[in-house]
Structure formats: structure tokens, C-alpha cells
């Protein structure tokens, strides 16, 4: 099973290592070499990736806390 995955992992590794950095949004200064813009893209990507995870995680902890605090029948 793991051996079967080797070619896929190798292709993925080559793809990640050889690919140039790309800013995909065509409408907001896409492909701009400006460091500020690149930093903004990175910050926005991290923010948009982590926010839903934090909210869902926080929601889970909140529900668990409420469940434990609610008395049984």
C-alpha cells in the first residue's frame, strides 16, 4: 500500500519543490513582486485557513463545557 503511494508522493514532492511562487488572484495586483503584497497574501491565507478551524474547535469546546455543566435527567 505504502509502496503504491511512492510515485504519487514523488510527483507531489517534485511539484512542490520546483514550482514557482504564484499569486493566483488576477484582479488584485496578481503576480506582483512587491514584498508587502506577498506578505499580505501569506497573512490572509493563514488567517482564512486558521479562522474556521479555531471557530469549529472553539464551538466543540463550548459544547463540551455546556454538556458537562448540564445536569443529567
Amino acid at each position: 500500500m505504502i509502496r503504491a503511494l511512492f510515485p504519487v508522493l514523488a510527483i507531489l514532492a517534485v511539484w512542490v519543490l520546483l514550482a514557482d511562487g504564484a499569486l493566483a488572484c488576477a484582479v488584485c495586483s496578481g503576480g506582483d513582486d512587491d514584498v508587502k503584497v506577498k506578505d499580505s497574501y501569506v497573512a490572509a491565507t493563514i488567517f482564512m485557513s486558521l479562522l474556521p478551524l479555531c471557530v469549529v474547535g472553539g464551538g466543540f469546546l463550548f459544547l463540551r463545557h455546556r454538556y458537562r455543566a448540564t445536569p443529567d435527567e
Partner: peptide
Amino acid sequence: GLISAHSIARAG
């Protein structure tokens, strides 16, 4: 999403 787009537009 709106704040992220605003930040990128502002930086550019």
C-alpha cells in the same frame, strides 16, 4: 474574506 481582500488591495 472581505477583510483579507481589503488588506491585499491596500498593500498593493
